[in-house]
Design a protein around this nucleic acid. Structure first.
Length: 155
DNA sequence: GCCAACGTTGGC
DNA sequence: GCCAACGTTGGC
């Protein structure tokens, strides 16, 4: 069992968009970074915990609790010439980009980035590290528990 | 819109 | 394999 933080731009796929999808489940399309891909391809398991994070928006923060809902499979957008995520170098017989489905279990209040930064117990949370740009980062169990506790206490 | 940080590309 | 140039991320 692993835990993850996954960034999404709400202008693309917000937590509300995900909740409105069938089964509250969305394919995590568009990841074009090898490290992030490797997490999905090699390390994620069904039922892993996911913190749904809004980035590149007015109030970045954790906005929902989700789970990994599929095994890895090829990101269909890499083969779609009409998609901004189209990768002409990726071949169907050897797909370069893999993804998993993510199912939102519940929306939370927005546990904002400043609030996360202000918590001494979360200093080592990877998403808070300077210069971090990875869209998917592993979350330590102790951080996961701390964050869930804050969400339960503070809403 | 700015810019720091970082990943990728490509010439050599 | 080095590294400068370039592109992207993402907070502010």
């Amino acid at each position: 069992m692993h835990y993850w933080l996954m960034k999404s731009e709400p202008a693309e796929v917000s937590v509300d968009d995900a909740l409105a999808a069938p089964e509250s489940t969305v394919p995590w399309t568009g990841v074009r970074n090898y490290q992030a891909r490797n997490f999905m391809r090699d390390q994620m398991r069904i039922d892993d915990g996911v913190l749904f994070y809004h980035s590149s928006c007015a109030e970045p923060g954790i906005v929902g609790i989700a789970r990994v809902a599929s095994t890895p499979y090829p990101d269909p957008t890499q083969f779609d010439p009409g998609s901004p995520y189209h990768d002409p170098a990726s071949k169907a017989e050897a797909p370069r980009w893999m993804l998993v489905d993510v199912q939102v279990l519940r929306k939370t209040r927005n546990l904002t980035l400043p609030e996360l930064r202000a918590d001494p117990d979360l200093q080592d949370l990877l998403v808070l590290k300077k210069g971090n740009r990875l869209s998917i980062t592993p979350v330590e169990p102790v951080h996961w528990r701390r964050i869930l506790k804050k969400l339960d206490a503070g809403s």
